[in-house]
Design a binder for these strands. Sequence first.
DNA 1: CGTAAGTTTGATGTAGGTCAACGGCCGTGG
DNA 2: CCACGGCCGTTGACCTACATCAAACTTACG
Lengths: 255, 255
Amino acid sequence: MDIQTQPITVQYIVKQLPSHLTHSISCQDCRMGNLCLPLAVDESERHKLDQFIQHKKPLQPRDKVFQSGDAFTSIYAVRSGSFKSFCLDSEGREQVTGFYLPGEIFGWDGLADDQYQNTTIALETSSVCEIPYEKLEQLGNAIPAIKKHVMKLISREINADQKLITLLAGHSAQQKVASLLLSFSDRLAQQKRSPTRLWLPMSRSEISSYLGLTVETVSRVLGALQKKNLLNVNRKEIEILDKQALQTLAASADE
Amino acid sequence: MDIQTQPITVQYIVKQLPSHLTHSISCQDCRMGNLCLPLAVDESERHKLDQFIQHKKPLQPRDKVFQSGDAFTSIYAVRSGSFKSFCLDSEGREQVTGFYLPGEIFGWDGLADDQYQNTTIALETSSVCEIPYEKLEQLGNAIPAIKKHVMKLISREINADQKLITLLAGHSAQQKVASLLLSFSDRLAQQKRSPTRLWLPMSRSEISSYLGLTVETVSRVLGALQKKNLLNVNRKEIEILDKQALQTLAASADE
DNA sequence: CGTAAGTTTGATGTAGGTCAACGGCCGTGG
DNA sequence: CCACGGCCGTTGACCTACATCAAACTTACG
């Protein structure tokens, strides 16, 4: 019943590798393949990607990938670990706008005005693939499948943002927290990882900012869900005991 | 001090035209030019756009442009009037996700999954240009400037959504309402229309859904802002009396 | 081992939600 | 042309979900 203290994450595996390998895996071998760019792209085309995608070396917690105001040059694919993006309001308070897990892509927010709107930092030891946007555009011209996929990736960000808008605008604290956990669960499942035992890489404060709540409320809601036997909560380790009930709760206000 | 009862809108002007002209204006003549697609595109290229963009005839209030679940085929540019997009939550409650004014583009939410996520309807007598996405893609291949601009348009939607997320997550009712009014003001200014005298095409209920509030709260906040002499409110007509103060209020919690 | 930062828990306050009544506007029909 | 009815917006009284404030506790780290 105890959650493994060191979960077997992609990050964990990568950490075990000699460091000269860590950031030199090619796109062909990348286990994120079908989540990331090369969907519906064959061997030889995938090779072209490798020519310019930079498989960067690991980032430490709090390391910035880019900062609000930086010139837009690239988008980034999460290879391992996790990231948060946020902006500061006029008061200097941090507003978290997204969490990114392995296989997910961030950085689109820089495209409209040629500079990133959000700062994005690593939440844990993590690595990214940097994909220069210019090069990606050129490759898209050569390979229509790539271009099509790029468009889908951008619009996936739109759909995610709109889902969050709906969550923020019309839902209770319980529904918000439950939805976040379910979202994480689904995204872990996409990585072929356990959808019931999750390790939250972000602090309560980051969760609360993302959900438009306070730290205290997030803490209390997690406590309440545990009391209802829907969850096991142990700091950042969460075990989902009753996904069904959690979904019901996230969807409708009853009980 | 009285607000003109029939404001001089694009819609108003278009209504005066013989109806066979209303939806046959070409992209060359469109006053929305630089807001919409043809930015940085020359005469001859603009002509190619005309070949497939459908300048549809006017829509009546509540007419659907597309419905949640419809197959994604096109994006739409607002020529005149205004639109709202919304989705229904599991309870059947309407969640408004965006308002669109002349020169703005909607429909990107359909791209990721090849079907629209939101329903979008006209708020008043309005007209749109339908831009078939397939054709737009092809044109983008031929004319790089078009493709670049399309990318910017999509990512503008991302930025708008993230701005709304920030507004919903960390701001008071007053700040939300003030921000909405200022947003409208700015967008009217882009159309070279008065940024101080606005006519809100949507109901209080639609505003409240968009801002994550109740009708009563929106009404009370408008009342309060009027009492502070920041606004004149007369049903859907709003006159901004003190934009400076409104901006201050929208940005910081003080006073 | 001591300090700081993150988390939990409790007591209290309040912004905004809920419920209810009313009033103005507009369409329809006599 | 006026009367009626329905819809939207406003206003008031009350209430609750969540914020705020405060303090203990736990973990992380020099």
